[in-house]
Amino acid sequence: MSKKEIYNTCSENHFSLFFKNHEKALRNFLYYKFGNEEQAYDTAQEAFIKLWQNCSSVPWEKAKSYLYTVAFNKSLKVVAHQKVVLNYVQESQPVTATNESPEFVLEEEQFRQKLLKAIDDLNETQKVAFLMHRIDKIPQKEIAATLGISVKAVEKRLHLAMLALKKNIENFR
């Protein structure tokens, strides 16, 4: 059950594995910040390149926080931030779907649209933390480690995000 493997950032195999595990979440993280897919893609690539180039001085355990720090620093240079476009997962749930009345379905749909708009109106720090938690399902502890802030701060951002979302949604009525 123990992990005897010793990982090395400079090994192409290990690095590829690391890349596979973190590439999607990193791009999402940058996308939440920029609202621009291309920009997120390019910045993520630059961050991975920097990690690869400096692999000999970055131990495996530090690789993730190094990656996010580089990406974060690069993101500061991006000036124009755009709207983040989100959508909902299409779920096939024939079991429950049959029980729902058309009015209910319509109401749900309206709520979903309001929620998207409300998320868009969040400030950036709250939006990033909220979406990392809700979309990438990253635990709060890990969000804290990734962003280099305390767990308490993450909790606060999520809490305030929820309050702001509720207020925004009610204002749309």
Partner: peptide, 20 residues
């Protein structure tokens, strides 16, 4: 509802090759 959110990103393509 926020738990069912999703963002559609394109595939990473040849990013890994470029990096390596």
């Amino acid at each position: 509802h926020s738990g069912q959110l999703n963002v559609s990103q394109r595939e990473s393509g040849n990013m890994l090759q470029t990096v390596l």
